[in-house]
Amino acid sequence: MTNLQTKQELNNEFKNIKYILTSTMRSKLILAMYNAPRNLEELRNELKKPSATILHGLKELETKNIINKVQKQYQLTSHGYLLATNMIKLIENWTSINNNTAFWDNHDLTDIPQELLKNMHLLKDATYITSTTSDLSNAFNKYLKLISTSSELKIIMPIYSENHIKHMLELLKKNKLKYLELIVSEDILKSIKSNKSFKEKLLGNKKVKIIPIKKNLKIFLTYSPNFISMTLFFKDGHYDDSQILIGESKNALKWGSKLYKKYNK
C-alpha cells in the first residue's frame, strides 16, 4: 500500500480538478448553465436525468459556491463562471488537437513555445490540407493560392527552397505583394546570397525585409493579415511539405502572431 501521507498529498494536489472533471453530472451541469441560467425542467431535458439526480448535483455545486439559485433559476456564480470559462478552454484545447492528432503527433514541436501549446484552443477552427499520392503538391498549391491574395506576408522560413522563393519574387513583381518579411537563419541567408538572382531580386528589393537569426528553426510559419499557415518538420529532422495547417479565424491569427513575434526580436 502507498502510505497514507503520500496518498493524502496526492489527493490534495489534484482534488480540485478531480472534483470537476471526473463527474459527468457536475461537469454537464456547469456547462449547461454557461450560456444562460436554467430551471430544473430545462436541466432535466438537457441532461436526460431524473430530477432527484440533478437536484443532488445542484446541491453539491451550490455548497461549493459554483452555482446559486435565484427564484427558480440556477445560475453560475462569478466563481463558477470563471471555472466554466476555463473548462471550455480545456475542452477546446483538446478538441483542437484531436481535429488532427496525426499532424501534432508526427512533427517536431520543440520550437513552438509551451505557452502556445497551452493555447491550442485558438486553433480550433483551423483546417489541415494533406497531399495525397494522387496529388503530391496539394498542400503546396493550396499555400501558393493563399499567399497570392496577400498584400503583406511575414514568414519564418526554415528551409532554402528555390521553388518557394521564385513564387515570392513573382508576387513581388506583380505588385500585389507590398511587403515581405522573412525570418531566416544565417545558414539559409547564406544560401540565398549564393544565388545571384535571389541576392539581387530578393535581398535587393525595397519591399523585402530580412531578419536573420542564429538558430535553425523547425517551423515554417506564414503570417498575413488574413491567414496563417504552418508546416513542420518530422521528428527525424526532415521537412514535411505534405501537411499544412491553415487558420483564418481571428483567434488563429492571434496564435500565429504570437508565434511569429516570439522569433522576431
Binding site: N16, L90, W104
Partner: peptide, 24 residues
Amino acid sequence: IYYNQLMEFKNSVDLINNFDEFWN
C-alpha cells in the same frame, strides 16, 4: 501537450479557489 493543458486548467482552478472571496 494534454498533460500540460490539464495542468494549466488545474492551476487556473486552484487560483480561482484560492481567491474565492475576491470573485464570489
